[in-house]
Design a protein around this nucleic acid. Structure first.
Lengths: 172, 172
DNA sequence: TATTGTTATACTCTATAACTATA
DNA sequence: TATAGTTATAGAGTATAACAATA
């Protein structure tokens, strides 16, 4: 993917010298990132892309995107909830959640059930297969994906990073 | 925006108790995030959305997106480069960079100049106005955007966060 | 009148193939 | 033959309005 390749290029800075006459040979060096290296949002975006790429690789045998994984996880932890509640919690708009659920339901990972209390709403439930896939996905994520992050950052740094990101997501 | 609203909901966890008979009144509580609270990629994504939202707000008088800001910054720090070099460094695909440049050029923020050495390539230059806008943007970003992040995290945490994100972007 | 799920739609991002003009 | 910029296009992701069924 071009993004990954470019990320690598972008991350090895080199000398900032002004172009002096007579060094056409050194012309093709890495570019100066300048103030971009200090912009939190920039690194945040690049890091997020890398982490999502790795997630997809690690969980590839199960063909789950990060968004689909988060839906299955939430259904497992919150039985008896309807589409609006699940979608809102994940920051997914209700209209966009419809096709997401269609995809999961067509793979027999979850099912919609008409609520008896309120016949407008669909109670979402994990199927047997959905639970099994979720268990396997959690194992892959823990043993491959999060393990790699732990290795790169160290356990204590990983926790500190998670805390700061959660704080930004919640309070910023 | 629904995403922001949902983010807030998602971030205040509550008790995980099983649904006991006879508490229909407490039914509408915040959902359990479960293992999602430990998933780095999830918080990374939510944090990134928040930070980009704030960037747009802070720099709104100049009508610059994070991507456009990064292009102007890179042009300022790397005179004499062509489209491919700038696009690759930012992880933008060359075809997609064309319309981005069209937008910036139509606002007289930068210009394409045929290279005399290699008449295939366009050397990118900031215009006078582009330089002025960039200076104003940098001030807004520093005084409003990054300042708010500094306030939320504290200066030393902010640096630690930036280092970890850069490491992930570069090495993960 | 309000809400749930849904459809339709549009706009942005991202991605690939192929063209043109130069080299 | 290869490269720089471009066009066309397709697919995700995200956003809003409006409708039918139900409350």
């Amino acid at each position: 993917m071009t993004v990954s390749k470019a990320t690598t290029d972008a991350v090895k800075p080199s000398r900032p010298r002004d172009k002096e006459p007579g060094d056409e040979a050194v012309e093709n060096a890495a570019l100066q990132m300048g103030e971009l290296a200090e912009l939190l949002g920039y690194s945040l975006k690049r890091a997020q892309l890398k982490v999502f790429e790795d997630f997809l690789r690690c969980v590839e045998p199960l063909q789950l995107t990060p968004a689909q994984f988060s839906v299955l996880l939430l259904l497992d932890n919150n039985p008896g909830r309807n589409q609006t509640e699940i979608a809102n919690t994940l920051g997914i708009l209700r209209p966009n959640f419809v096709s997401m659920l269609d995809a999961l339901e067509s793979r027999d990972l979850c099912a919609r059930m008409r609520s008896t209390n309120d016949r407008r709403s669909h109670i979402l439930v994990l199927t047997e297969k959905g639970r099994a896939v979720l268990v396997r996905a959690k194992k892959l994520v823990a043993s491959k994906h999060e393990a790699r992050l732990n290795e790169l950052l160290g356990p204590e740094n990983r926790v500190a990073l998670l805390e700061m990101l959660s704080k930004i997501a919640a309070e910023f």
